[in-house]
Simulated scan of single mutants.
Amino acid sequence: MRRSIALLGLPLLVLSGCAAPGVGSGAPPPAAPDQRPAFTQRADEVAARWRPGPQWRDGYVPLQDATVLGGDPGFTEETRAAFAAGWYRDQIAMPTAVPPQGSIRFPDGVLRVPLVSAADAYAQLDRGDPPPCDGRPRGPEPADATAAPGPDDPVSTTAPTPCIPLTVTSVRLGSAPVWTSRGRADVPAWLFTVAELAAPVARLAVAPRAVGTVPGGAADTGPLPAGLVAAQELRTVAADRLDYLVGVGVCDGAPTPLVREGPDVVVVGAAVVPATGPCTMQLAMKPVSVPLTAPLGDRTVLDVGSGAPLIVRTGG
Rank of each mutant, 00 (worst) to 15 (best):
A123N: 13
A27D: 12
L13N: 12
E45T: 07
A38Y: 07
P278Y: 08
P52K: 13
P142F: 06
V155L: 07
A205L: 00
A270H: 09
P257M: 00
V229Q: 06
P255I: 09
G128C: 05
L13I: 00
V211N: 14
P114D: 08
L296V: 01
G217N: 02
D303T: 00
P287R: 15
V206E: 07
S4E: 12
G316Y: 00
V113T: 06
V46W: 09
A48I: 05
D298T: 12
D153H: 10
D153A: 08
A199H: 12
D90R: 13
I311N: 06
S4V: 09
A308M: 01
P177S: 15
V248E: 02
V201K: 07
E45L: 04
V206T: 05
S306I: 05
D108P: 12
R203I: 07
P149S: 08
F39H: 04
G222M: 02
R172G: 02
P165S: 09
A19V: 10
M281A: 09
G102S: 03
F39P: 07
V214N: 06
T280A: 15
I92G: 09
V246L: 09
R57M: 04
D134S: 15
G70V: 06
M1V: 08
A231F: 01
P99I: 07
V214Y: 08
G307W: 05
A93N: 13
E233P: 02
I5T: 04
V61F: 11
L63V: 02
P107F: 01
P165Q: 04
S306H: 04
G102E: 01
E78R: 15
S175T: 01
W87Q: 00
L283E: 06
V110P: 13
R203A: 02
T76C: 08
V171A: 09
G86D: 04
R51P: 03
D252P: 01
L10W: 11
D72Q: 11
A185Y: 09
T276V: 07
